[in-house]
């Protein structure tokens, strides 16, 4: 069994973890670091529930081997809140818009929204749809998620 020690930053904090080479990033986040907000919906990169930011870009962490994250900067859903517990504007918007039903897709959806708004601060409907294509939601029919993205966009531009 090959093992490797990886050093990476998770939510701004340095982490050093001894991992097996066949572990995925999602399993290390969940099982080694206790960051259960990263969800597993399919394990095949098709539902997007495990999306995290890796070096500023969203990836499905179930398709990334943990060893590939050596040296990377990872942001998970747990890394968005401020120290004082105030929410990130995207999180606030999801709550306000009712964009969360069962909530299992939500962490991934929020991470994708953050990346989307980074790329398109004032996204068109088309850009929103394209930006969230990799995140399946079965509860909301996406309608209130689309609303949430626009609310978040306004909040973030207001600063």
């Amino acid at each position: 069994m090959d093992m490797k020690t990886i050093s990476f930053s998770v939510n701004g904090k340095p982490q050093k973890v001894h991992v097996r080479t066949n572990w995925t990033l999602s399993s290390v986040l969940r099982e080694q670091l206790g960051l259960l907000g990263t969800k597993i919906g399919c394990g095949e990169g098709e539902c997007g529930a495990c999306s995290v930011l890796m070096n500023g870009k969203t990836v499905t962490s179930c398709l990334v081997l943990a060893v590939q994250a050596d040296g990377a900067e990872i942001i998970t859903i747990e890394g968005l809140e401020n120290m004082d517990g105030t929410l990130h504007p995207v999180q606030e918007a999801f709550v306000e818009a009712g964009a969360v039903q069962c909530g299992y897709c939500t962490p991934g959806m929020v991470m994708s929204t953050i990346a989307l708004l980074e790329k398109h601060p004032e996204p068109t409907e088309e850009e929103v749809r394209e930006g969230l294509t990799g995140n399946l939601c079965r509860c909301t029919g996406y309608q209130k998620i689309f609303e949430a993205v626009q609310i978040a966009s306004k909040k973030m531009r207001r600063g």
């Binding site: 990263t38 969800k39 597993i40 747990e78 929410l87 969360v100 909530g103």
Partner: peptide, 20 residues
């Protein structure tokens, strides 16, 4: 229209689901 009472837990990734 009221936001769901458990939404804040869910958007912060704190909700513990069965498979967690």
């Amino acid at each position: 229209k009221r936001p769901y009472v458990d939404a804040k837990e869910k958007v912060t990734g704190r909700t513990v689901y069965v498979s967690d």
